[in-house]
Design a binder for these strands. Structure first.
Lengths: 229, 229
DNA sequence: TATTATTGTCGCAAAATGCGACAATAATAA
DNA sequence: TTATTATTGTCGCATTTTGCGACAATAATA
């Protein structure tokens, strides 16, 4: 974390979406002894691509490789520069041997969102944070700096993109029922969809592979499982 | 241009679209005595919002305020770091009193596109460049660094956005005919559109105000003029 | 075998889109 | 004045897409 190794003034933040219990969730971490909640983020090494830095951070936080990742906005207002907040975080982690003063400078942050299979993730705090957990998107704790605004913009972008790109499946396991896929869409769009129309639309796209049925043990017709590709 | 005043490692580039002679054009500048063509760009002052920095640069380059401006991607690959190119530009402008060595560092660039009324613009070179002119998007000179890639991504984003946001009108004067508006759409999308369908669609959106007719002197029916809002 | 909840699919109306055609019109030519 | 020509505003109709309800099939239970 020595300042010499990283590009100054540049950070990234990632809005990591997961889906569980019919709800859209994101990964939030809490810094040691500060009560500060934040998006998982990090910095870019001087010899590292920006996108690779984000992938690296995601790997550390979720244990996953090959994550669906999309850059959506770069936040660069002066107002997001609050050195006293960073000072609080640094002091709560007192490691006087390191020179962390570069963290007190102004930062511009490049924001990404990721879509991941909730079940595969092991949320892992890093050195500066002591918790890393899932929160419903509509029940977030108060986030530091402009992170609430970043989440808001991530949601807007995801809503715009869900129908243009075929992105919803990344939030599910490799095989899923049509109903589960529909619930993902409903959680993202924030509205109920008509079952028949949804099924017809998805099948007409020609990207879903139909597999064996999933027998749940319930007293009703068993749904097919699908996968993308 | 003293390094102390600007955020290091961070630049912006702008793809400024104009429309003239049925063609989509962008503003390109050429650096003194280098043969290097580039997108108009600049740096962010330490006390300035990122978006404001871009507006400021646009004002200097085009003379226009209140420009339609949209951020679309941030380019951060290591491969775009080519100090020898910057050295060339700096040396061609030999001002040994200034310390421009900070320009030789690695930069991440935030890319924006702007849509402007071609007729109102006075392309203005800055201190480092000696020409600033319009080029057809499909007849660009070879651009330095990754600027060709930036233009490509700007075009893709513009194509995706033109039907979602009502953005085409920014490339025209305040009042325009339906045919002119259609030509703008065709230039952006790169395909012919059906006249009747286009007119019906535009009018159905309910955002066009119809004004007086425009008598061109030609031997045919005169078209109405329209404006947005 | 009847019941129940859920699924896959279809039918039909409504809305959106693609495409050609017609009448209106502004200037010119006869 | 009248015919001609090119362009415009609009409409009609076929096609496609979408919204919404309904029906039969089906997996387990009573």
């Amino acid at each position: 974390m020595q300042g010499d190794n990283y590009l100054h003034h540049i950070a990234y933040d990632s809005v990591i979406f997961g889906f569980s219990g019919e709800k859209l969730k994101i990964l939030i971490l809490e810094y040691h002894n500060t009560g500060l909640f934040a998006l998982p983020g990090g910095f870019v090494r001087k010899d590292e691509n920006l996108n690779d830095a984000v992938q690296r951070g995601l790997k550390e936080r979720t244990g996953l490789d090959q994550i669906y990742l999309e850059q959506f906005y770069t936040f660069g207002d002066v107002a997001r520069y609050k050195p006293e907040v960073m000072k609080q975080i640094i002091q709560a982690n007192h490691t006087p041997d390191e020179d962390l003063s570069w963290l007190l400078d102004r930062f511009i942050t490049v924001a990404y969102y990721a879509l991941i299979n909730y079940a595969e993730v092991v949320p892992t705090p890093d050195a500066l944070s002591d918790s890393c957990g899932w929160y419903d998107v509509d029940q977030l704790p108060p986030l530091m700096l402009d992170h609430a605004q970043i989440v808001q913009k991530a949601l807007e972008t995801l809503r715009e993109n869900i129908n243009r790109k075929l992105v919803g499946g990344n939030l599910l396991p490799a095989r899923f029922t049509m109903k589960e896929l529909q619930h993902v869409y409903e959680a993202i769009l924030g509205e109920k969809l008509h079952r028949g129309t949804f099924q017809r639309k998805m099948l007409s796209l020609g990207v879903l592979q139909r597999h064996e049925k999933q027998y749940s043990g319930a007293a009703n017709k068993a749904p097919f499982l699908y996968s993308f590709g």
